[in-house]
Write a protein that binds this DNA or RNA. Sequence first.
RNA 1: GGAGGGAUCGCAUAGUGGUCUAGUGCGGCCGCCUGCUAAGCGGUUGCCUCGGGAAACCGGGGUCAUGGGUUCGAAUCCCAUUCCCUCCGCCA
Length: 420
Amino acid sequence: MIDIKLIRDNPEIIYQAMDRRGEGRADVDGIIELDSSYRLMLKEAEALRARRNDVSKQISRMKEKPADLIAEMRQVGDRITQIEAEANLLSDKLEDMLLRLPNIPAGDVPEGQGSQDNIEARSWGRPREFAFKPLPHWDLAEKLGIIDFQRGVKLSGTRFYVLRGMGSLLQRALISFMLDLHVREHGYTEIYPPFMVKRECLVGSSNLPKFADNLYHDAEEDYWFIPTAEVPLTNLHRDEILAPGSLPIYYAAHTSCFRREKMAAGKDTRGIKRGHQFEKVEMYKFVDPSTSNDELNSLVDNAEDICRRLELPYHVIQLCTGDLGFAAVKTFDIEMWAPGCGEWLEVSSCSNCGDFQARRANVRYRPDPEAKPRLVHTLNGSGLALPRVMIAIMENYQQEDGSIMVPTALQPYMNTDTIR
RNA sequence: GGAGGGAUCGCAUAGUGGUCUAGUGCGGCCGCCUGCUAAGCGGUUGCCUCGGGAAACCGGGGUCAUGGGUUCGAAUCCCAUUCCCUCCGCCA
C-alpha cells in the first residue's frame, strides 16, 4: 500500500508511477477525492466528540444533573453515530482502493510495456552442446518412471502429477541442498510456516483483495492456501515493532505452494512447469530502508549461487516498469535454459517491495531505543522453485541412453551419480 | 465437540459507571550521588490518527483482545466474535 499522505501531498508522483506501469490514473483521483471528504467528516465527528467529552465531564462534577444539557448531549451523540457511520463507509471504500493500487517502481527500473521490454542484466555458463537431440523432461521422466503424469490426473485432475522413486528423491535432495546453503552460508534462519493462513495475511502480502482469483480458499473456516511462502513469512512480524538492532532479518522456508492458475487454462499443461501444487524454497528479508537496494542485489546473488553450484546455465533479467509485479519496487528474474522443451524457465523472482508490504502488514522497527517506529522494507525471492529446477536438471544432464547425471553438489544428498 | 476461567501501557499487576487526564512495581531512558560495582535519590516513559508549525513542539480524537450496543458519560454493564488457559471427549 502506498502512503496516503504521499498521494495526498504529491499526486504527480503517483500519476507518473501509474503511467510508467501502464495503469490508468482514474483510481488515484478517486482516492484523493474520497480521502478529502473522509477527513472533512472525521473533523466534524471529532469536534462533536470533544464537546461531548467536555460536557460529560462537567456533568460528572454537578450534584444536580441538568436535564437540558443531558438532552442536548443525547442529540449530539446521535449525530456522532450518524456521521461516523457515513465516515466508516468512506474509509472502507478508501482502504479498498488503496489496497488495489500497485507500488511505485524504483527510479532505475527500465521503462517498458511488458515482458518484451525486460533487459538481460547478466548471464552465467554456456548451454551444453548435445551430440543427440535432447528430449523434453516429460518424455525422459516417464521413461525413467520418476514422474507419473497419468496417475496425477487420476487423483486430482489436470496440472497435477506424482513424483516417484528417484523423482521424489531428487526433489527432496534439492530442497535440503538449497535450505542448507541458505542457512549455513547465506545467513538465513529456516522457518516452517503454516500452509493455510487467515485472510489478513493475504492482505498483508498483497494477494488480497485484488488477486483472489488465483487463490484456493476454504470457505468453511476461512483458511487460505498459501500461493508462496512469501505470505506467511511477511506476516511473521505483522503488527510488530522490531527492537533496535534486530535488522536485518533473513528467513528461508520450504513450503508447498497452491495456485489456481485460472487465467492460463490450457497453457503449459505439459510436464511439471506449471502445476496447481508445487514446492518452493523461499528467501525473505526484513531490512532497514536505507539498505534495501543492496539487500536486493545480495538476495539475487543468493539465488544465483544455487544455479552456479548446480552448474546450470542461467541469465538474470531485470523486469521493466510494465512487467513489474503489483507489490514490487524493483525485480530481477532468474531463468534457466531447458534444452528439451526449448525455453527459458523462470526459476526465481527476486523483488524489493520497499515499505509496500510493511505498511499493509504493519511491520515496523525502532532505529534506536528512543526513536519513533518506522516501516521496514521487505524483500522476497525464490531460492528456488523446485519443478523448474528439476526440469533444468533432467533436460541439461540427460544422456543419450535416457539416464540423467546427478549434479555433483546433489550427489551427497542422493547417494548416487546417475538416475537410470 | 462439551464445561468452566481469562485477555488492562515492554513485562507483572490494581482497577465493578463520572477525581482513570488508566495507578503501582519491574524494565528502559535522562540526571544526581558515588574510589569502582551494586544500592540509593529525583525525573521521564506506548501506539494510531486529525489540525497547526520549518522544527522542537502544541491542541483535538481514538486506543484497556476485536466489532456492535446501553448511557449525558464505559477498562468497568449487555451481545457477538477471536485468541489463550484448565478439565472432559476425540486424535497423527
